[in-house]
């Protein structure tokens, strides 16, 4: 029996209306400078975020560095404990889970990491790396395990003859395939992919993007795809969430976000990205934002974007936090003046 025809995959539902993961008001604060007497402040990396990832979809999570997107991904994958809030996966809140119960949940919920050089243990062979998840859960032994590893390697475009090689003998693209194989071998339902292609060469990126799409179709996977590259996110995602300074600014289906962004930040972000077409580029005029993303230790009051926003009005934007609410059917934006830029 192959992975593809396993009953788990057969029974997996692809319903892009049904929430597979619900993130409810999640915050993640990293305390800094807290001494013995308490006090000190905190990096408010994720600060009250709610959204859902639907069964079988790819939700793109985009934002600039320091916006908290990677932290959010790790909180959802339960690699960092959330400071508060709920992450409901298959009907259970993962946040209070600890120990063995949480470890068991990890079978269903996997992660692909950004840096294919740092995310593989240099002292383990490729076979050991891909086989480790099976070992951890006692899922397959001996011959059966090695068959599974072989199958997953082939599925991910790796030659199983290289089973006994070490990661440093592979190129970046091949290593990322190893990382994907490791995540896939447990046959998970949900995969958090944290910038899986940004460390790769341009000509290699497409290979990995296509592989991820292919795997999604074959195994009915659900992806949370974290990236700063909006072009890739557009290519891969059904829906897109835009994050800024620990909060979600806008969330909608891919088409609406790209064709009709409502939040001024999304609009500026989209206009900042060059298109490989000199004629279009000559016509486009990017909306240049002032300055750079402020510190998450002491984020701006009111709307966090107001310090850089071209359409901010005072005092409302600096005093009232705009709620993330539906503006046009299902298109959510957190802006007092959504759609006015």
């Amino acid at each position: 029996m192959t992975l593809e025809t396993s009953p788990e995959v057969e029974s997996r539902v692809v319903d892009k209306q049904l929430a597979l993961v619900s993130v409810e008001d999640v915050t993640k604060h990293f305390p800094i400078g807290a001494g013995l007497l308490g006090g000190g402040s905190a990096v408010r990396a994720v600060d009250g975020v709610s959204f859902e990832v639907r069964a079988g979809e790819t939700l793109g999570l985009v934002g600039e560095s320091g916006c908290g997107k990677s932290t959010l991904g790790r909180v959802i994958a339960q690699l960092h404990p959330a400071t508060s809030g709920k992450v409901i996966f298959q009907g259970q809140d993962l946040v209070p889970m600890r120990g063995e119960k949480l470890r068991r949940m990890r079978q269903e919920l996997q992660m692909i990491f950004q840096d294919p050089y740092a995310s593989l243990n240099p002292r383990m062979t490729v076979g050991e790396i891909i086989g480790e998840p099976l070992k951890n859960f006692g899922l397959a032994r001996g011959k059966e395990r090695s068959n599974r590893v072989h199958e997953v390697m082939r599925t991910c475009g790796l030659n199983p003859n290289f089973l006994n090689r070490y990661p440093h003998e592979f190129s970046g693209g091949q290593r990322q395939r190893i990382g994907i194989a490791r995540a896939l071998v447990l046959n998970p339902t949900f995969i958090v992919a944290d910038e899986p292609i940004s460390a790769l060469d341009v000509s290699i990126q497409a290979q990995i993007v296509n592989l991820m799409e292919d795997l999604q179709n074959r195994f009915k996977l659900t992806y949370l795809f974290i990236a700063h590259d909006l072009s890739v996110v557009r290519h891969l995602s059904d829906r897109v969430a835009v994050m800024y300074l620990g909060k979600i600014m806008e969330i909608a289906d891919s088409h609406s976000i790209y064709e009709n962004p409502l939040h001024p930040y999304t609009k500026a972000l989209l206009s900042s990205i060059p298109i490989p077409d000199p004629d279009l580029e000559a016509k486009r005029q990017p909306i240049l934002l002032q300055g750079e993303i402020p510190s998450p230790v002491n984020p701006p009051s009111g709307c966090r974007f107001h310090t850089r926003c071209p359409i901010a009005q005072f005092p409302i934007c600096s005093e009232q936090v705009p709620p993330l609410e539906s503006k046009v059917d299902g298109h959510l934006a957190a802006c007092h003046f959504a759609g006015q830029l």
Partner: peptide
């Protein structure tokens, strides 16, 4: 990151220490 990755595939603390941290 590889230790984080090992955690994400459900490796127990003993495994993290003996397979991932100590050998490195």
């Amino acid at each position: 990151e590889f230790v984080e990755a090992a955690r994400s595939i459900g490796t127990r603390d003993v495994g993290l220490l003996t397979r991932h941290i100590l050998p490195n």
